[in-house]
């Protein structure tokens, strides 16, 4: 009886009696959701263009963040470091296309996936060689990112909003919207969608597969840099940062691998869902449940929409 009470009654009483705390939980869910969407976006971009799950996305986040703080540590101003880090990600995109992808056109998806695993390990080793394994601090104030917090007194309690979280949510939203517009309204975006549908058909109408791949990997590199800045500021910049990429998996399952809006909505559903469950129901299971609960949410959605929330329905005709 107590168990049923703790599942179906007690959490809702808590929500009603401590509305300020509920607001705080929802805010944290929103911030996490936008940050998850940002990570998922990196995967979606590359999957859309090549049908490949980019195993290297996590280490790209680390590599981009380390490059940024590395340039700054070398004495360069923050904005110059940012531009140079973007240039490095552009060079990486060009290199991946020239050295890896170009030779694998029309190979099975599994081969391309394996290639991204190889790329991931190369970047880990190369990154450790250049930057070392010590954790570094992300530059925030130097980049104009706000610090500090605002405390709002509401419902006889408080809600604390970190300025960095507000900035992170805003930047993630702008980046997601910008990329969505870029890929839906521009010529390159249309070419990308053509490549995603059928490599050979796209080639036959004169679309340069190599160019599209380089652009998409560069866009994924920009997303990786933004992700690295935001997550690095919340923790530190180290190779442990690649683990955050795992947070994108349930978002991708939920939102679909090919949908930018899916990444956004999926990220928010996972963000809100896992925070609410962890805070109000997690204690019943000993806590630490958000890691797997995100997958439960995703799997529940999959039961009803196997292609994901916004994924394209695959119809195979006999």
């Amino acid at each position: 009886m107590d168990l049923l009470f703790n599942i179906f009654v007690s959490p809702f009483i808590e929500m009603v009696t401590m509305p300020d705390f509920l607001l705080q939980v929802l805010w944290e869910g929103f911030v996490s959701g936008t940050l998850y969407a940002l990570i998922a976006l990196g995967f979606v971009l590359i999957f859309k263009a090549s049908g490949v799950f980019n195993f290297a996305q996590g280490i790209m986040v680390v590599f981009a963040a380390l490059t940024l703080v590395g340039f700054h540590a070398a004495g360069l101003p923050a904005y110059v470091s940012l531009v140079l880090a973007l240039a490095v990600m552009g060079f990486l995109a060009w290199g991946v296309e020239r050295v890896v992808l170009r030779h694998l056109v029309n190979q099975p998806d599994l081969i391309l996936f394996m290639a991204t695993i190889g790329l991931s390990y190369f970047l880990i080793g190369f990154g450790e060689l250049i930057f070392g394994g010590e954790p570094k601090s992300m530059i925030t104030e130097q980049l104009g990112l706000p610090t500090g917090s605002t405390t709002i007194e509401i419902f006889d309690g408080i809600v604390i909003l970190q300025h960095l979280d507000i900035a992170a949510a805003a930047i993630a939203a702008i980046l997601v919207a910008g990329l969505a517009l870029f890929f839906s309204k521009t010529r390159i975006g249309r070419a990308l969608r053509a490549v995603a549908d059928d490599h050979q058909a796209a080639l036959s109408v004169g679309i340069s597969l190599n160019q599209i791949w380089a652009i998409v990997w560069f866009a994924a590199g920009i997303v990786a840099l933004a992700t690295g800045i935001m997550w690095g500021a919340r923790s530190d910049v180290s190779f442990a940062l690649q683990i955050v990429a795992l947070k994108a998996l349930p978002v991708l399952i939920l939102g679909g691998f090919t949908s930018v809006p899916g990444a956004i909505i999926g990220g928010l559903i996972i963000g809100f869902g896992e925070k609410l469950f962890e805070v109000y129901w997690g204690g019943l299971l000993g806590g630490g449940v958000e890691g797997w609960f995100a997958y439960v949410i995703a799997l529940i959605f999959l039961l009803f929409r196997p292609q994901g929330l916004f994924g394209e329905k695959i119809i195979e005709r006999v």
């Binding site: 939980v25 944290e28 683990i243 925070k275 958000e290």
Partner: peptide, 21 residues
């Protein structure tokens, strides 16, 4: 008790919401 999974090392907002609670 507040267990933090390896995957959540850099994403601990829920844990600290629970601490606040």
């Amino acid at each position: 008790k507040f267990p933090v999974g390896v995957k959540e090392m850099q994403s601990q907002s829920s844990h600290w919401l629970n601490v606040r609670k």
